[in-house]
């Protein structure tokens, strides 16, 4: 007995402190990776699908200053801010840039009557109900959820559109409120002091009796 002695090498003294360090770092690492990796800011924001026609909002809504509602004309009356029919494009493009290869799919759609297969950028889960008209007619600007579309060559998702993000505003709507006549003016900012801005927001909140519901059934119906 005891003829052979196993002698731990000297470096094995490092194992215990090493294990402690790994044991302390790993949970932190996992928490951070999950928290950031699963966040909609990582998975959803920045989605910028290519479109069948390289339509530039930066040109039409930005440089030319067309109102959002010229094309998305259902936004004040319906839940959905509809993608316009090809006819809306052709109000101008029967004359402007009519031979451009970039708008060829437009002409094809106009002649065949088949819709253009635009790629959807903003897509809420199918179990969430959202009504555009309820928001824009009461002074929540397009920019609150869509960002500066008037500066985007290709539209991308600017906000997380997650439940937590919706609730942030439903809990504290004041900062998102403005005169409903200004909702499509994406670059608008209140000119005045912070107190004056707060008073103005409070005025619209009072005027439209804005008290956003946080019930489950408000959005999940």
């Amino acid at each position: 007995m005891g003829r052979y002695h196993f002698v731990f090498p000297r470096w094995s003294n490092l194992l215990l402190p090493g294990a402690l360090v790994v044991g302390a770092v790993t949970p932190l690492y996992v928490v951070l990776v999950v928290a950031y990796g699963f966040s909609p800011k990582t998975t959803d924001v920045g989605y910028e699908p290519a479109q069948p026609v390289p339509f530039s909002h930066a040109l039409h809504a930005g440089e030319l200053g067309m109102d959002c509602r010229y094309c998305h004309n259902t936004v004040e009356r319906a839940a959905k801010a509809a993608i316009p029919p090809t006819q809306t494009c052709m109000n101008c493009h029967t004359q402007i840039h009519k031979d451009s290869p970039q708008i060829a799919p437009l002409l094809e759609s106009y002649q065949s009557g088949n819709p253009i297969a635009w790629n959807r950028v903003h897509d809420l889960p199918d179990f969430a109900f959202f009504d555009h008209s309820a928001h824009v007619t009461r002074g929540v600007s397009c920019v609150s959820c869509h960002g500066r579309i008037d500066r985007m060559e290709v539209v991308y998702q600017h906000e997380p559109l997650s439940m937590g993000w919706c609730l942030e505003c439903h809990r504290n709507p004041d900062e998102a409120l403005r005169d409903p006549a200004l909702v499509t003016d994406l670059g608008w900012t209140f000119e005045g002091t912070a107190e004056e801005a707060a008073a103005e927001q409070a005025r619209w909140k009072e005027l439209h009796q804005i008290n956003p519901s946080q019930d489950c059934s408000t959005c999940h119906r």
Binding site: L32, V33, Y36, G37, F38, K41, T42, T43, D44, V45, G46, Y47, E48, P49, A50, D123, P125, D126, F127, Y156
Partner: peptide, 25 residues
């Protein structure tokens, strides 16, 4: 993973959105 996350948070992409938990999205 942190490198991929940092990339996803700073760049736009036309890659499909990732929903780890599909629920009934």
């Amino acid at each position: 993973p942190p490198a991929l996350i940092a990339r996803a948070r700073t760049r736009n992409t036309d890659a499909r959105r990732i929903h780890y938990i599909q629920d009934m999205d």
